[in-house]
Amino acid sequence: MKRPLGAIAHTRSGDKGDTSNIGVIALKPEYYAAIVREVTPERVKEFFGGLVQGDVERFELPNLGAVNLLLHEALGGGGTLSLRIDAQGKTYGAALLRMEVEVD
């Protein structure tokens, strides 16, 4: 069944230079497998379209039921160079809550 990611996960995002990181955390332990299966670097890059110019990396933290996504070249130069309202990617995590995922 297709659901928005926000039905099974919560997120927090921030910045390191021109890279945005999004932590995606399962709302219940049983949702972690679906997050690992569905929230792939390829799908996340496609979801954000032109907002993410570089690659997307993913790290798994099964102990926290979470994955950490690094979105490279995603903040218009980052820090004080960026001309974007969300130069630190503070809202990118919230954006990802809309991504459709297949839930068991």
């Binding site: 932590g23 955390i25 790290f59 933290l61 926290l64 979470a66």
Partner: peptide, 29 residues
């Protein structure tokens, strides 16, 4: 929930969180 969100905040490679004091492994928490 609130602690996990902050643990993931501004994180890079969770197995290699580098500081002048040590390298911390967030996958052991």
């Amino acid at each position: 929930d609130t602690v996990k969100e902050q643990l993931l905040y501004e994180l890079g490679d969770p197995t290699r969180y580098m500081t002048p004091d040590c390298i911390a492994d967030f996958t052991t928490i």
